[in-house]
């Protein structure tokens, strides 16, 4: 198996599995975010956030998630640098006029960087206060004291520029997924002429549903949920 992970297909196998793992994380994240739209003053969202901070999830699953991100980014960097070398040192003077190639597919690393940059801001905004410094207001729901995560998120979304940044990040993620989703299955070998069309349709719908939903939640929070 040693030669498997050093082979080109083995490295891409790691890319596709870590990518699909992150796709599952996105679904979990999106479902919890959707609770921000429940008009109960954030009670349900706070409960969900509290649940996600349980020791088993915080110390058990969260490190796995971080490993997923690190592996995906590390392999992306490694593969991109090998590929740039393989392209050769002389660039085509005639440029590239190949049609019918999706823009996102040629710019996955750049799109990945925008997603990563957005994620860094995101971590500073929420993860650091909630899980590291604990510098967050508290609220008591049904006798349990917990972070008022809703208030933190709600306050962040009151700022126009944060909502704008959030939407840009989410749409960058959409573009990344329009290629990444079907590409993962192609790399796993779970594709042929028929399934390629199916994965592309499923992937494109999934990508835009995820990106637009994240964006909409932020925008609705900004306009309709401010106290």
């Amino acid at each position: 198996m040693g030669t498997f992970f050093s082979s080109s297909i083995g490295k891409k196998f790691v890319m596709s599995l870590s990518g699909l793992f992150l796709v599952i994380f996105l679904l979990v994240h999106l479902s919890i975010n959707a609770l921000l739209l429940v008009p109960d003053g954030g009670e349900m969202f706070n409960n969900a956030a509290h649940f996600m901070a349980l020791p088993l999830i915080k110390y058990g699953l969260q490190p796995v998630l971080f490993v997923g991100f690190i592996v995906h980014i590390f392999y992306a960097t490694m593969l991109t640098s090998i590929n740039n070398k393989a392209r050769g040192s002389v660039k085509y003077a005639g440029g590239n006029n190949t049609k019918d190639v999706m823009w996102a597919s040629k710019n996955m690393y750049v799109l990945g960087i925008t997603v990563a940059a957005f994620m860094a801001v995101h971590l500073c905004d929420y993860w650091v206060p909630l899980q590291i410094t604990g510098n967050v207001e508290s609220t008591t729901l049904h006798g349990t004291e917990m972070h008022d995560t809703y208030a933190l998120v709600n306050a962040a979304f009151s700022q126009c520029w944060r909502v704008a940044l959030y939407v840009v990040g989410a749409l960058g993620l959409s573009l990344h997924l329009t290629h990444g989703f079907w590409s993962a299955f192609q790399t796993l070998g779970a594709s042929n002429s028929l399934w390629r069309k199916r994965w592309t349709v499923i992937g494109t719908i999934f990508a835009w549903v995820v990106g637009v939903s994240f964006s909409l939640i932020a925008i609705l929070q900004h306009f309709f949920y401010q106290a």
Partner: peptide, 23 residues
């Protein structure tokens, strides 16, 4: 290099070989 499934190859292939072969 490592294939990233852009599909440029099959567009330019003079024989129209499909990337279904890559899968």
């Amino acid at each position: 290099g490592n294939c990233t499934n852009t599909g440029a190859c099959e567009v330019e292939c003079p024989k129209g070989v499909s990337i279904a072969n890559i899968a």
